[in-house]
Amino acid sequence: MSTTTASTATASIREEVLAGPHGDLRVRVYRPGSGAPAAGLVWAHGGAFMHGDLDMPEADHVARVLAAGGVAVVSVDYALAPAFDHHAVLADDGLEKGLARMLAATDGARFPVASQELAFAFAWAVDADLGVPAGGWSLGGASAGGNLAAGVALRLRDAAAGDTDAAPVPPSSTARTVPRSVVLAYPVAHHELPDPWPELATKIAALPPDRSYPPAAVRAMNDHYLGHERGPDSPYAFPAGHDLRGLPPTLIVTSDHDALRSSGEAYAAELAVAGTDVMVVREDDTLHGHLNQPDDPGCARSLARISAWLTSDVLVGTTHEPPA
Score class of each variant (00 low, 15 high):
82 P>I: 08
222 N>V: 01
289 G>F: 00
273 V>A: 15
221 M>V: 15
114 A>K: 05
303 L>R: 05
105 A>M: 01
283 E>A: 13
145 G>F: 00
167 A>P: 03
305 R>I: 09
148 L>M: 08
291 L>T: 03
226 L>Y: 00
220 A>R: 03
87 H>A: 14
172 S>I: 14
181 S>G: 12
175 A>R: 11
141 G>C: 04
154 L>P: 09
39 A>Y: 15
285 D>K: 14
112 P>G: 02
154 L>H: 04
165 D>L: 11
88 A>K: 13
223 D>G: 08
197 W>Y: 11
184 L>C: 01
91 A>Q: 13
209 P>Q: 08
202 T>R: 13
142 A>D: 11
188 V>E: 01
232 P>H: 03
143 S>Y: 01
105 A>L: 01
26 R>D: 13
190 H>I: 00
177 T>D: 09
164 T>R: 15
226 L>A: 02
103 L>Q: 10
300 A>K: 08
20 G>K: 00
91 A>M: 06
101 R>M: 09
20 G>I: 11
161 A>N: 11
182 V>L: 03
35 G>T: 12
219 R>Q: 14
212 S>W: 06
299 C>M: 14
153 A>L: 03
24 D>W: 03
252 I>F: 05
54 L>Q: 10
271 L>C: 08
2 S>M: 12
258 D>Q: 12
291 L>M: 08
96 E>H: 06
242 H>Q: 04
144 A>F: 07
146 G>Q: 05
99 L>N: 07
5 T>N: 12
268 A>M: 02
251 L>I: 05
82 P>V: 07
72 A>K: 12
125 A>P: 01
235 P>F: 08
154 L>N: 06
216 A>V: 04
269 A>M: 11
278 V>H: 02
96 E>L: 07
235 P>G: 02
166 A>F: 01
275 G>E: 07
62 V>H: 06
205 A>R: 15
33 G>P: 02
109 A>S: 15
146 G>Y: 06
179 P>I: 02
229 E>H: 05
181 S>L: 01
290 H>M: 05
53 D>S: 14
176 R>L: 11
43 W>K: 04
210 D>Y: 08
276 T>C: 10
95 L>I: 09
205 A>V: 01
149 A>V: 05
298 G>R: 06
265 E>N: 07
198 P>G: 10
75 S>H: 06
14 R>C: 10
180 R>V: 02
223 D>H: 10
158 D>M: 08
109 A>C: 13
36 A>N: 10
299 C>K: 00
9 A>P: 00
151 G>W: 00
124 W>E: 05
99 L>C: 07
308 A>I: 09
234 S>E: 06
157 R>N: 07
83 A>F: 05
218 V>Y: 05
259 A>G: 14
157 R>M: 04
21 P>T: 09
194 P>I: 01
296 D>V: 03
236 Y>C: 09
147 N>W: 01
273 V>M: 03
177 T>R: 06
134 A>C: 11
207 L>E: 10
